[in-house]
Design a protein around this nucleic acid. Structure first.
Lengths: 191, 191
DNA sequence: CGGTCTCTTGACGGAGTTCAAAGCTAGTGG
DNA sequence: CCACTAGCTTTGAACTCCGTCAAGAGACCG
């Protein structure tokens, strides 16, 4: 299953087949049960995660004690709290498995060494971050322009697989609304 | 003033002093008057902008015809609609000068050539995008967690220089609220 | 100066939250 | 493999934040 990462790299840059294992060796494979935390609140964020199988979410607890999910990651997505990861700060987020999940993890120092050893990966990560950032520009537009109801329908129409994979109250926390209101919206649009 | 870009590059990667001019030659310097558009709605997004002096904002027009500002850029910041820029699509955004502004601009093809000619810049842009993305993760947290009033105070406390530089109705559109409500909040917190 | 943008103020309305309670589902242990 | 419980979803009523509309008071530029 670790092959997934190599295949993903190959979509962006050329990889010497003889060095594939050397790259893979920079990472550790980890398994997490449903609802198990990969990153705990107020701890240093050591790892960058690449999802091989399963689904993660990143959330924080707001000042009313409610979970707010700001991001999901499924197969072939990278995820971490990048601010805390880069600067070695404590995180304000929690990363949790939504399903039983297998990831590859790498710490910041190893990642720098990896990129130094394989300069092609500098380009790979540049492209990954560029796309992540461009996606987040569009996401910001939706957060500004959509009502909660529009946001739900947009997400539902564009990522139907997601909607089915995720418990409803978790979806509500991602759509930045209460579970009660999501329930109301869903049942409103029934024929 | 073009030196600003070179100095910025040098903060992240080593640059051969003899090649500085070669790098600078990839860019064109442009001036824009206050309220002049650098990027028009529904046109192809040709350029990536680096602000030498002044202030830009990126906004869209929502379905009620109201401007919503999702991003500012001041000195030493990069800005474009990255999705449209990378894929050669038409943009849903407008980029406009908030003040008289001088920028360096480069098109996508030239940028790829630039990075190819100076591989150190692959690292530079990787770091720029990584930081931009990490900042956008935090921003998303604020958009989820803050009430409009908290958002205003947070922005005002952390970027007071900005608040003074920007017309109030533009600030309101960035804070995702009406000018009327911003006015109410401001005057509420007066002693 | 005159006209167009910009900021303020207040009354009203609606999208979305809060709180409470009842029904439903799924995971766990026996 | 069933029963029991904890967690998830639904419903409804009261409430609140913030938008809408209207109208007046600056402020800026030609």
């Amino acid at each position: 299953m670790e092959k997934n990462l190599i295949n993903h790299l190959k979509k962006y840059v050329a990889i010497d087949p003889n060095r594939e294992l050397d790259i893979a060796n920079f990472f550790q494979t980890k398994h997490f049960a449903k609802k198990e935390n990969l990153l705990e609140f107020d701890t240093t964020c050591k790892y960058h995660f690449f999802v091989l199988q399963g689904c993660l979410r990143m959330f924080f607890i707001n000042d009313k004690g409610v979970e707010q999910t700001i991001q999901f990651a499924i197969e072939n997505w990278w995820l971490t709290d990048y601010f805390a990861f880069e600067y070695g700060k404590k995180t304000e987020f929690i990363i949790q498995a939504v399903e039983p999940t297998t990831v590859l993890q790498i710490d910041n120092q190893s990642q720098e060494k990896l990129i130094h050893t394989f300069p092609a990966l500098e380009r790979y990560f540049r492209l990954i971050f560029q796309r992540a950032y461009s996606a987040s520009q569009l996401r910001t537009k939706y957060l500004y322009g959509f009502s909660r109801e529009q946001f739900y329908h947009h997400f539902n129409d564009n990522f139907p697989a997601f909607t089915q994979r995720i418990p409803q109250h978790v979806l509500a926390s991602f759509l930045n609304m209460t579970p009660e209101y999501l329930s109301e919206i869903k049942n409103k649009s029934r024929p």
